[in-house]
Amino acid sequence: MATERKILKKESLGPLFEKMNAAGKRILAPRKTGEQIRFEPVTSANEIAADFVQSTASAKWAVFPAVEEMLSFRSLDKETKLEAKQSKPQPTVVFGIRPCDAAAFKALHAVFATDYKDDLFLDRWEQITLIGMSCTKADDYCFCTSVGGNPGSTVGSDILLTPLANGDFLAEILTEKGQQLVASLDGLFAAGGSDIDKESLLAKVTPKFDAKQMKAKMDAVFNNEKLWTRQSLRCIGCGACAFVCPSCSCFDIQDERYGGKGQRLRCWDSCGFGLFTLHTSGHNPRHTQAQRWRQRLMHKFSYGPEKYELPGCVGCGRCSRACPTDMNILGHLLEIAEEKL
């Protein structure tokens, strides 16, 4: 559908939240707790963190929670009965999500909706509306423009807000979901905005590499063990990068039983863990951290784009900021680009 431009006045932000609350929507927005900014349920616009480059953790848990029930069961004597999932996901608005993160929602969708349709994910997805917020500043870890995004990209968002100098927002209504939400908030979005030069309001993120060339290069250096070992020597094999990543989708399945009832749960997992691929026999196809680091990059920059025709990394920079050992993904990528064949 054609993008429609409107203006959201700063004084309309409060009523916007009130009306969404009243309509029974759960609102997730970036909130500041200590030094951290996380997407959490909020009820008022006052709770939202202002003036930050990137949230510490992404909002992906709104569609792909760190732990979620796949099915539950109840046992009586020797008989075990599966129980139907009770509740449907609540209609949810994610407010203030960065364009890179909104693009990551698309990447997640590609994984869960290609071939087998994963209804655990899709049921949540259907109930989600994304109100993006363009970036007016970036930092050294950002590289969205190298992976197909930009600080004002509309990809993935249903509505994209861009802050104006006077505190108001340029609102781009991008999808039917966005339209429906605007229609339900009668009058909060005012006409106007068609003459605004959006580009001039955005942060500048200089492209550092070309994603297509990066894929080719990565495929070419696949067997360069020295490179992968050198890059991963300081990696300690934790899951911080994968768990703050907005597009990482790997998961584990764990069963729990307490007394006569239990659940099968889906939990985030990471290809950086040695246990991820370990066979019961003790054989491990990726037994070194170098192989696991290579897998992480290959999955994001080669296999993923080939399979889903979407970047597997959106350049949000979270993994680099979060890494306890300063594994800077952009630095590593640029080093790979420089590597002689």
Binding site: F112, D115, Y116, F251, I253, T277, S302, E306
Partner: peptide, 23 residues
């Protein structure tokens, strides 16, 4: 015979190159 969990190309565990061994 890679380690698998979901069996349907979602969980990522059996990814080898461009293939999911399970799918």
């Amino acid at each position: 015979e890679n380690r698998m969990k979901c069996g349907i190309g979602k969980c990522g565990r059996c990814n080898v190159g461009k293939y999911f061994v399970c799918k």
